[in-house]
């Protein structure tokens, strides 16, 4: 997590293991509940959930943006509520249900929000989309008939640099209609 201790290589990489051993990085064994599956991992204790998901679990649907809590593209659900994986330490998340975008579809059946986003073209480059889909799913689970302002508020922490916000709002409304 510190600027001088960012490991971007896969943890299978010998060089990385070697460097971490030299740096005396503290590692921990953790059991995380990710998308309903209990996963046991050996990870450096300073790694963020975003880094562990992408680098140690190969769940690269969760995107890596500002790393500072400002953009929302790293959003995951913790016990059903959106939180930012770039500011979470896995060591604090044992026993909590973690949902990533990979856990959104049911097998090959896309979630109605995913279908609506695809149909309406609510994703342009798609970088913000995983975070927005998860935040929208959490909203619809709590409030199946959100007003447009409520959707805006629920997605306020998720920036879209392609700025196609209108389609995103319409797609959430369409999915809400279909889910009722």
């Amino acid at each position: 997590m510190y600027a001088n201790a960012v490991f971007t290589l896969s943890n299978k990489d010998v060089n990385q293991l070697h460097r971490e051993a030299l740096r005396d990085v503290e590692r921990v064994v953790l059991t995380l509940d990710v998308n309903g599956e209990a996963r046991q991992l050996l990870v450096p204790s300073h790694k963020t959930l975003l880094e562990v998901l992408r680098e140690d679990m190969q769940l690269t649907g969760t995107k890596h943006g500002c790393e500072l809590g400002e953009c929302g593209t790293c959003t995951v659900l913790i016990d059903g509520k959106p939180q930012l994986s770039c500011l979470l330490l896995p060591i604090q998340l044992q026993g909590r249900a973690i949902t990533t975008i990979e856990g959104m579809a049911n097998g090959s059946d896309l979630h109605p929000l995913q279908v609506a986003f695809a149909e309406l073209g609510a994703a342009q480059c798609g970088y913000c989309t995983p975070g927005i889909l998860l935040a929208a799913r959490s909203l619809l689970e709590e409030n199946p008939r959100p007003a447009r302002d409520e959707i805006r508020e629920a997605l306020a922490g998720n920036l879209c640099r392609c700025t196609g916000y209108t389609k995103i709002l319409q797609a959430v409304e369409l999915a809400a209609d279909r889910l009722r």
């Binding site: 997590m1 510190y2 600027a3 001088n4 963020t48 500072l68 809590g69 770039c86 500011l87 330490l89």
Partner: peptide, 20 residues
Amino acid sequence: GTDLFPKLKRRQFEVDSLIG
């Protein structure tokens, strides 16, 4: 951690231990 973690990343604090 929403205030502290961004600041640790920018090295505005340098710590050996975090107490959750």
